[in-house]
């Protein structure tokens, strides 16, 4: 494992925990897209089914279990514990426009036509677009709380670091996984506009608000 990959995993973990803490401490999930969080829970579930079939390393197993546990806890906080604070009126992205095409694509373009492999592929495609309901919500309300911006930034950094990891692995190991790379590129591009706003506004101490 190279440094990019490790830092990528850490920033992914940081993003997930940051969101959980934000909701827990403020007792509110205002401004958070429950739909994006459900999609991430689906992503982790579909991808980490190999927990039951394959042992890779203690690190690998622990991270997968933590990711799954955290994402389900987040969904539970949004839709059950702090349901009253959930901003459902602004969370109106149609998730079927993401789930159906990515599911079809996973059947058509995959490494191997087996159930687990198709589910893994589906999770990779779905992850690349799962943040769209959240970004849509931010654009609809025109702003995001600073901590929500940090969450989105850490999440964007994660896939960007994975891109460097893939360049590294291709260069030094001759390894590449085209499905992960293309989906990872799409995912990173979706964050670019947000990165720009984050650097020009949030880092200068301003709240992220979009021009009307």
């Amino acid at each position: 494992m190279n440094l990019f990959r490790f830092l990528g995993d850490l920033s992914h973990l940081l993003a997930i925990i940051l969101l959980l803490l934000k909701i827990w401490k403020s007792r509110s999930c205002a401004g958070i897209s429950g739909k994006s969080q459900v999609l991430f829970a689906v992503v982790f579930t579909a991808r980490y089914l190999d927990l039951f079939t394959n042992y890779i390393s203690l690190y690998n197993t622990c991270m997968k279990v933590v990711y799954i546990a955290c994402s389900f806890t987040t969904v539970w906080l949004i839709y059950s514990k702090f349901k009253a604070t959930y901003d459902g009126n602004h969370d109106t992205f149609r998730v079927e426009f993401l789930v159906v095409p990515t599911a079809i694509l996973a059947f058509l373009v995959n490494h191997d036509f087996t159930p687990l492999e198709i589910l893994w592929t589906f999770s990779i495609y779905l992850e690349s677009v799962a943040i769209l309901p959240q970004l849509f919500m931010v654009s609809k309300t025109g702003e995001a709380e600073t901590i929500t911006s940090h969450y989105l930034f850490a999440l964007g950094v994660y896939r960007t670091l994975y891109l460097f990891n893939w360049i590294w692995r291709y260069h030094f190991e001759g390894f590449f996984d085209l499905i992960a790379i293309v989906a990872g590129l799409v995912q990173t591009v979706l964050y670019c506009d947000f990165f720009y706003l984050y650097i020009t506004k949030v880092l200068k101490g301003k709240k992220l608000s979009l021009p009307a």
Partner: peptide, 10 residues
């Protein structure tokens, strides 16, 4: 046919 190619990335 339930196996999956080994994947170490998360």
């Amino acid at each position: 046919a339930f196996e999956m190619m080994e994947k170490d990335e998360l």
